[in-house]
């Protein structure tokens, strides 16, 4: 009898604890369901439909995915290109006809952008962290200075960089023009070969616009990467440096034989995080270039925004969103699979 009462009391207590636990979870759970899980499920459904926000979605099956990813082949165009004297590569390009060529332009831009940001942020961040990992006076100030762009809002940074990149009166072209003018006065005019001011249209010419965005994002990312690298650098045991120095290792030997191998888990982390955020790039082209000029900064997320929210093709836009998800998932998976070959785990 007593045992039964005790069991009953424990059971009641557990039930009450469970209810309390769920109540504590509820705000977060509701937020997750309302703002993430349900919209994700709806977007997945829309990706199989023709939906313009105003009329009832019409089920299309895989048509949206086929439109984005599908290609057809035009042997006639291949032959014509060869007859016109175009290269074999150009002829193959003419032979393959994507169903939605703009999607492939956006995909190419996104991949180039991601690669560019990885290169222009990780390497400088690593070198900066290495340089700043010392006990020189004012080091805290320099570290804070490099970190400032991370806390600045993307919108504010983008507007400032818009001004920096302005062709006619921007800071960058003013510096380049001033430097060229100074060099001409100093050397080149005297030897009869004055340098010509390139007067670069950073954001207005297709050949420079994507690079300009890469540079701006890298500037904004370097601070974060540097802080992570710095923390990892400071976790390397001092006795390893001492032992290497006693053995006569140079600064470069220490860098490449001790620091870099021990930092590979951190490098991998930064690599994955930067890849994921770069593939989702939206704000910079939205604010600075609107995907132009000539689609040169049209990224895949900006393209899905155009399709979904500017052209009201919500079904196709949703399918593009899921393609971006799949792309990021596959690339991250490959990164993890390849990490075993170069990431040093203790």
């Amino acid at each position: 009898m007593l045992k039964s009462r005790i069991r009953e009391a424990i059971s009641k207590s557990r039930t009450r604890e469970s209810i309390e636990g769920y109540l504590f979870l509820l705000p977060n759970l509701l937020g997750f369901l309302i703002f993430l899980a349900i919209p994700l499920a709806i977007s997945f459904y829309y990706s199989f439909t023709d939906y313009n926000l105003f009329t009832t979605p019409k089920f299309l099956g895989l048509a949206n995915y086929a439109k984005a990813l599908g290609v057809s082949f035009d042997p006639q165009a291949y032959q014509t290109a060869l007859v016109q004297g175009k290269s074999w590569f150009a002829a193959v390009g003419a032979w393959i006809k994507p169903n939605d060529p703009t999607f492939w332009v956006a995909l190419r831009n996104t991949l180039v952008y991601a690669l560019g940001v990885l290169g222009f942020s990780i390497i400088p961040a690593f070198l900066l962290a290495w340089l700043l990992n010392s006990r020189l006076r004012g080091m805290t100030f320099y570290r804070a200075l490099i970190y400032i762009p991370v806390v600045a809002s993307v919108v504010g940074s983008a507007l400032v960089w818009n001004w920096i990149y302005q062709q006619q009166s921007g800071a960058l072209n003013t510096i380049i023009s001033g430097t060229i003018s100074w060099l001409n006065k100093l050397i080149f005019t005297a030897i009869g070969h004055p340098l010509v001011d390139p007067y670069i249209g950073w954001l207005v010419l297709p050949q420079y616009a994507l690079f300009s965005l890469i540079l701006m994002t890298s500037w904004a990312t370097v601070g974060y990467d540097m802080v992570i690298f710095l923390a990892a650098l400071q976790g390397i045991p001092v006795h390893l440096y001492e032992a290497a120095t006693v053995d006569g290792a140079s600064r470069w030997h220490i860098l490449f034989r001790i620091i870099v191998p021990l930092m590979t888990p951190t490098i991998f982390f930064i690599f994955v995080i930067n890849t994921i955020s770069s593939l989702q790039i939206f704000s910079e082209p939205y604010i600075m270039t609107q995907g132009g000029p000539a689609n040169s900064t049209l990224t895949i997320v900006y393209y899905l925004y155009q399709k979904g929210f500017q052209r009201f093709q919500m079904g196709y836009g949703s399918s593009l969103a899921w393609i971006v998800f799949a792309l990021i998932f596959i690339i991250t998976l490959i990164q993890f699979r390849l990490s075993g070959r170069w990431v040093y785990e203790e």
């Binding site: 249209g201 010419l205 297709p206 000029p293 000539a294 689609n295 155009q306 500017q310 052209r311 093709q313």
Partner: peptide
């Protein structure tokens, strides 16, 4: 669809004229 045709197809190619491409 004005945005698809003029914004999506005409404009990028007009940009190429202005860029000399």
């Amino acid at each position: 669809n004005w945005n698809d045709i003029v914004g999506g197809q005409y404009q990028p190619n007009i940009d190429k004229i202005f860029a000399g491409l």
